[in-house]
């Protein structure tokens, strides 16, 4: 036993030495390369003015603002599309997942068809297709469709009345020189990304929900019905609490991958974090720093989600015990 312990220690020491050597070598080569070629490094560029504009932003942003604020605006844009998409995909996915368990053959078939189609086509392709549909089939901004009072839909997106604005309580969209001016505008990039992410993730959520419900032994629902519960009561009081326990962990995973998938925004011109970081990379040439920033932010989001998910699991655990 003593020998084994010593050997393990030896192996680990060697491993650590190899690792340090590799790291040292990597840093040495990189630093050497950069010094020899006069490449600047460091994060000082974050304080410089960004110098480029961002098409749409939740945070007030101007090209004279600093680069880090530009990246923050990018992150805000990522969350701006990811959070509604999480909500929409969870709702739609739950409905479809339940639909797949319906006694009705048509509904079951439709939901199965939805899942099998959406899951088996790359998300990027779906996003590109949605974007093409939104920008190509809608009328140009100068001839926007009016869906209601002060609600316009066109190639330039969906314009809605929004609180605030210069004058009164509501900022109303109006027809301007090139199209719609004022109000809150949801751009086609945003709409396509929201639509694509929600529909794609809904297929995965549906499978998660279906799997979760099927994981509850059949005897449970039979017993509940035998006790005289209605189908709704059985579902709410017996099936759901048990199913949730196996649904929630994979569900948070789906939400996390939705947030990561939002990075595909770069392909359709929505200024999310990756897109803004990519522009920064081009303007400053600081490739390593920009990529490191993207990765760090996403890692943080992942940790945050993991933590939230654990908290949620504890909460539902308690709720299950109570009901």
């Amino acid at each position: 036993m003593q020998g084994r312990r010593r050997r393990e220690l030896g192996i680990q020491a060697l491993l650590a030495a190899a690792l340090l050597a590799a790291l040292w070598w990597l840093l040495d080569v990189t630093a050497g390369n950069m010094a020899e070629r006069g490449i600047r490094s460091g994060f000082d560029f974050l304080r410089d003015p960004a110098g480029f504009a961002i098409g749409e932003s939740l945070l007030p942003f101007d090209s004279a603002d600093s680069t880090w604020w530009a990246l923050a605006a990018g992150l805000a844009n990522t969350l701006r599309v990811a959070l509604p998409a999480i909500l929409a995909s969870t709702l739609l996915g739950t409905l479809i997942g339940l639909g797949r368990l319906s006694p009705n053959l048509l509904l079951r078939g439709l939901c199965a068809g939805y899942v099998e189609t959406l899951r088996n086509i790359p998300l990027l392709l779906q996003l590109l297709a949605w974007y093409f549909v939104v920008t190509d089939l809608l009328p140009p901004a100068s001839a926007a469709l009016q869906l209601g009072p002060h609600v316009f839909l066109s190639k330039s997106g969906l314009a809605l009345p929004w609180p605030g604005g210069d004058g009164g309580l509501l900022d109303l969209p109006l027809r301007g020189e090139f199209g719609i001016v004022g109000g809150a505008a949801l751009t086609p990039e945003f709409l396509a990304l929201l639509l694509g992410l929600s529909l794609y993730t809904a297929a995965y959520v549906a499978e998660t929900v279906r799997g979760g419900i099927q994981s509850v032994p059949r005897g449970q629902s039979d017993a509940a019905l035998a006790l005289g519960m209605t189908r709704l009561q059985m579902f709410r009081l017996v099936l759901l609490p048990q199913a949730l326990r196996s649904i929630i962990p994979p569900l948070t995973n789906q939400h996390l991958s939705l947030t990561k998938n939002a990075s595909l925004a770069v392909a359709i011109g929505y200024p999310d974090l990756v897109s803004v970081a990519n522009t920064t990379l081009n303007q400053t040439g600081r490739a390593a720093e920009c990529i490191a920033l993207i990765m760090a932010v996403y890692l943080m989001l992942s940790l945050l989600t993991a933590w939230l998910s654990a908290w949620l699991e504890r909460r539902t655990g308690r709720w299950v015990e109570r009901s």
Binding site: A53, S63, A64, A267, G269, S275, N278, T279, N282, Q283
Partner: peptide
């Protein structure tokens, strides 16, 4: 994206005091 173009665009219209909305794409084709 990836060119000096974005920066020029923002500089020019800022100097003119005009607001515009850039729509930035990763690829030329797009």
């Amino acid at each position: 994206s990836g060119t000096t173009t974005e920066k020029n665009l923002s500089d020019y219209f800022k100097a003119q005091g005009i607001k515009i909305k850039p729509v930035v794409f990763e690829k030329f084709e797009a």
